[in-house]
Write a protein that binds this DNA or RNA. Structure first.
Lengths: 244, 244
DNA sequence: CGCACACTTGAACCCCCTCAACCCAAGTGG
DNA sequence: CCACTTGGGTTGAGGGGGTTCAAGTGTGCG
């Protein structure tokens, strides 16, 4: 079983520590709760360590909890009966997980590396949303964001070529770290080739081959298999949207 | 330009009629507003007629409005510079449109047939959300639903074969109309082959061919090109998830 | 009646998948 | 210290599902 790191203290005992000092809070929905209310949040959650490779959300099972990733990265995926897999996203630090319908998870989640999550029970979370409108507002914002990137991913999966897919993928990994004007960004890949393939609707072989092509065209270089240095950002941008 | 059908009356003049008697309200987010507050909703919106073929939301443009479809169907899509198109969804009666980030629309919307929408200005809508938490709650619910179907669509686009895609598509069109135990449902297609293709990540030719295959296997029959009768629901279900 | 346009069908091609071998770095154990 | 194993990544050869290009076949509407 997963390891529970911190149980919330009994209410009124000076709890609230974990969330108050949480380094991930600024990047997550938890930022919607003010400092003087943060104990309420802390009391509703349990922090859990998920070891690499462990699946902590199972598609189709009753959606009893919400999660917030505070460390590591998880892959979110759906499976077909014969084992084909589509990774629908990667959940890094600050990522909020568990928005579901019909009270069943729509996807599974597996830790890519050692992950820590804050787990909120569904009823407690709903309680919090009622009490803190800012939290609900933030969740709607998060959901809208997710929706937009899901649509972008549909465009990728439905209409882009292998090279365009990989270029788009690398760009998406570049941008969060801010501007790179003049400086060529290095992207670290937390996931392996199989994960990238299942995210982009390809095979590991095609992912590998396409990396090689980008390398031979001097658009990227690879200090190691999981570190990509972007050598020609503009060209990568062109590739991502069908340019040449 | 689009035709404005009803301008909201000046506040305090007995407005509220349009929403109070709206037949679409029960199916839409508007149901979250009680009867005695419904005038507030009506005062915030303008009903607009969009003729078939007209694009009334443009990807990338400032997202000044939210929309609610009350009649007809619209297709939502994204384009690549060279014209490749991915339809991300179809918006029928009761569908809420416009959740966006960065205040720019992430997709375009075009009327498939004659469409009517209720248009809400963004600031007014935010005002309403603040005043009616139930509305915001409903929107979050809607967004979560959208997210789930977006993930399902990613699985389809990334991993399914042509036959599996078309079977999934037909099934999705069957289910809303309730159970069909013993009765074979007839699905009416509001969109043409090109739209289906762009929704499923295929070409019109492959869509057509695949329809023909399903027909020859007696899984469906086609009273007309835009009416599909499901003759073997179980087989269609099997096809949709990779069975045979 | 005939034009227009959507849909269907056919044939050739191609991008990506499949299957298989190979490389390489990181253990592991004798 | 080196043989062996293991697992991820890469590369190669061949095949197939879907696209492309092109020619029919309806079918509604003037």
């Amino acid at each position: 079983m997963d390891v529970v790191l911190r149980r919330p203290l009994i209410a009124g005992c000076g709890s609230g520590e974990p969330c108050a000092s949480c380094a991930t809070r600024p990047f997550s929905v938890c930022a919607a709760i003010d400092d003087h209310d943060i104990a309420r949040l802390a009391a509703a959650m349990v922090e859990i360590a998920v070891e690499r490779g462990r699946t902590f959300i199972h598609e189709g099972e009753p959606a009893g909890h919400f999660f917030n990733v505070t460390r590591g990265t998880a892959k979110l995926f759906k499976l077909l009966p014969d084992g084909r897999r589509q990774i629908t996203g990667f959940a890094g630090r600050g990522y909020f997980l568990g928005l579901a319908v019909d009270k069943a998870y729509a996807f599974s989640a597996e830790a890519i590396d050692d992950v820590r999550v804050c787990r909120f029970s569904r009823p407690k979370m709903y309680r919090l949303m009622d009490d803190f409108p800012a939290l609900e507002k933030r969740l709607l914002e998060v959901a809208a964001n997710e929706l937009v990137s899901a649509q972008e991913q549909m465009l990728l999966l439905g209409r882009k070529t292998a090279r365009e897919r990989l270029a788009s993928f690398l760009l998406a990994l570049c941008s969060p770290s801010g501007d790179h004007e003049g400086r060529y960004p290095i992207v670290h890949l937390a996931m392996n080739r199989g994960d990238i393939a299942d995210y982009l609707g390809m095979t590991t072989e095609t992912v590998s081959r396409t990396f090689s092509i980008l390398k031979s065209q001097k658009v990227i270089s690879m200090p190691s298999a999981s570190d990509i240095r972007v050598e020609a950002l503009e060209k990568l941008r062109a590739f991502a949207t069908g340019g040449d």
